[in-house]
Simulated assay, not measured.
Amino acid sequence: MSMYGQAAPPAKKRSTHKSVIIHGPQGSGKTRHAQQLADHFGLDRVIEAEEGPHQLRSAAIGTGALILTNVTPHRTFRRQLTIAQALKLLQGKPGYPF
């Protein structure tokens, strides 16, 4: 209850997971499967970072983002997968067609 006797609005749920970078060539299905991948990793934002490494660094700041790019990230990013590796994680999941 707030100080005025009304219930406080519910807090927006934010992901506490670290960001994940999915990389692959243009047309490989990154955007098409973005929501399923974000749900799989428990992330609440999808960011398309197609311009290069500097944009990857700024997009990775904070938590809860699935970052899609066609640039292979530097090895300094721990949580990075190719689109092929990411799609293998979704195989056999309920509601996933492939």
Rank of each mutant, 00 (worst) to 15 (best):
M3W: 14
Y4D: 14
Y4N: 14
G5Y: 02
G5L: 06
G5T: 03
Q6M: 11
A7G: 08
P9M: 14
P10R: 13
P10F: 06
K12S: 11
K13A: 15
R14C: 00
S15Y: 00
S15K: 02
S15A: 09
T16Q: 14
T16D: 13
T16W: 11
T16P: 01
K18V: 03
K18E: 15
K18M: 11
K18F: 13
S19H: 01
V20S: 01
V20A: 06
I21A: 01
I22Q: 03
I22P: 00
H23M: 07
G24V: 04
G24I: 08
Q26P: 06
Q26L: 07
Q26Y: 10
G27F: 05
G27P: 11
S28M: 12
K30G: 00
R32A: 13
A34H: 05
A34G: 15
Q35I: 11
Q36Y: 12
Q36A: 15
L37C: 12
L37Q: 04
L37R: 09
A38V: 09
A38F: 06
D39I: 10
H40L: 12
H40V: 04
G42V: 03
L43F: 02
L43C: 00
D44F: 03
D44Q: 06
R45W: 05
R45F: 06
R45I: 07
V46Y: 05
V46Q: 07
E48N: 13
E48S: 14
E48I: 01
E48H: 11
A49I: 08
E50Q: 11
E51Y: 10
G52S: 08
G52H: 02
G52E: 09
G52W: 08
Q55H: 14
Q55I: 07
L56G: 01
S58A: 11
S58G: 01
A60V: 07
A60M: 00
A60G: 03
I61A: 09
G62L: 10
T63A: 06
G64I: 04
G64W: 08
G64T: 05
G64V: 01
A65Y: 00
L66M: 03
L66W: 09
L66Q: 00
T69H: 00
N70A: 14
N70W: 15
N70D: 15
V71R: 02
V71W: 09
T72I: 07
P73W: 06
H74K: 03
R75P: 11
R75I: 13
R78C: 00
R79T: 00
Q80V: 06
L81A: 05
T82W: 06
T82V: 06
T82P: 01
T82N: 00
T82L: 03
I83E: 04
A84T: 13
A86R: 01
A86I: 08
L87H: 03
L89F: 01
L90V: 10
G92L: 08
K93A: 07
K93N: 12
P94N: 09
G95F: 03
G95V: 00
Y96W: 14
P97G: 04
P97Y: 06
F98N: 11
